[in-house]
Computed example of a mutant assay.
Amino acid sequence: MSETAADIEIDTGVAAVSYLDPNAPALFAESLRTTGFGVLRDHPIPQALVDEIHRDWLAFFDSEAKHAYAYDKEKHDGFFSTAVSEVAKGNDKKDLKEYYHYFGWGRYPAEVSDAARRYYELAGALAAELLSWLETHTPPDVRAGFSMPLAEMIKDSPATLLRILRYPPLTGNEQPGALRAAAHEDINLLTVLPASNERGLQLKTASGEWGYVPSDFGTLVVNVGDMLQEASGGYYKSTSHRVANPTGESARRSRISLPLFLQPRPDVVLSSRYTAGSYLEERLRELGVKQ
């Protein structure tokens, strides 16, 4: 498959589960176990709230006001321009994106409504519930390895991060091989993401093919991060994923994405090898974010 969006549809095996289904916890846990991803329909996060964030932040990224919030090199909150965008681990090209990091304690632009703040709280509460689902449906021998209940790991965590992403329209002058987001795995415990206004999210299947994650607008995409993989001894696997470059009319439009990265408190023990804090420090150094 090419490094751009492909027309071929690959069955990724990701289950789209109704939050209202009595069997949702078991179905959701199984999807995350087998694919690293799950999709929720009929979830409690209002679509109107997501729409408001998209409108607010598209305008913000199109304005000069964003530069007044340049990211803090120590705290890592604020605005990251395309010039300082991430280089995914194992890659040598910057992703084609700009973004804003919001922590519960961090700076928040005066130019936008409080919709993203409200989403931060709602999605965090939902993530705690989803982690409880996973724990209930994790085999006892794996569950015995958790240092505490999974939902407890993220309670009052200062490290949980909302990344408000904007993938700008493509110009045709991009560096060959550069993607909106190159293949990577998330560092955190769990990621919660409202389906974007434009398709593009792909995961790498067990057979090595890239397929689109089911992401109808209005659904919620959830995926396993490396910290959950570590804490579960590999029972839940962190799956490589990327955002492919669009073609046609979609290439001329911005794409907004709102991943909430649920990070445990730094002192939470993930395994005999790592606390959440030591794991995060190691990965940030690998990414070149920290020296």
Rank of each mutant, 00 (worst) to 15 (best):
L170K: 11
K75Y: 14
H54G: 04
H54D: 15
Y102D: 01
D95P: 05
N197F: 10
L220I: 07
A116W: 00
G145T: 06
R180T: 06
L32K: 00
W133S: 04
R143M: 03
A159E: 15
M227N: 01
E282L: 11
W57F: 05
I45N: 01
V224Q: 03
S18T: 01
V289P: 03
D72N: 15
K155T: 13
L201S: 05
A26K: 08
Y279L: 07
A251F: 04
S254L: 04
S31P: 04
S147L: 05
A125I: 14
D7G: 15
L270C: 02
G90T: 10
P158R: 04
L49M: 10
R273A: 13
V14F: 02
D62W: 08
V50M: 00
S257G: 14
E286Q: 12
L161G: 03
G225E: 03
R163I: 13
S132D: 14
E230D: 11
G104Y: 04
A125W: 01
L130W: 05
P44A: 07
A123N: 02
G211C: 04
R41L: 14
Y102V: 02
T205F: 10
F79A: 02
A181H: 09
D42W: 10
G36N: 02
V84R: 15
D77M: 04
H184V: 12
G177R: 14
K237V: 05
F146S: 00
H67G: 04
H54R: 11
P169H: 10
L270W: 01
G78V: 01
A183T: 13
N197W: 08
L49K: 09
P158T: 05
Y102F: 13
D7P: 05
I45S: 00
A65V: 11
L262A: 09
D21G: 07
E129Y: 05
A244P: 07
R163L: 14
L287S: 13
Y212C: 08
Y71R: 15
D77F: 12
F28R: 13
A276K: 00
N23P: 03
S254M: 09
L40Y: 09
A15Y: 13
Y235M: 02
G288H: 12
Y274D: 07
L190S: 01
H241F: 03
Y100G: 06
L40H: 10
A276C: 06
L162C: 05
F37K: 01
A15C: 11
S215R: 09
E135L: 07
V50C: 02
Q229K: 09
G234Q: 12
L134T: 02
E281M: 12
G208K: 08
L126G: 00
S132H: 05
S85K: 06
R163G: 11
V213K: 01
S271A: 08
R107E: 10
A244H: 05
A70M: 11
S250R: 13
A29Q: 03
P149A: 10
Y19P: 06
A26V: 08
P266A: 09
E74G: 13
S240L: 15
E86A: 12
D21P: 06
T275Y: 06
E111Q: 14
T34N: 03
E111I: 04
F37P: 02
E111V: 07
D267N: 14
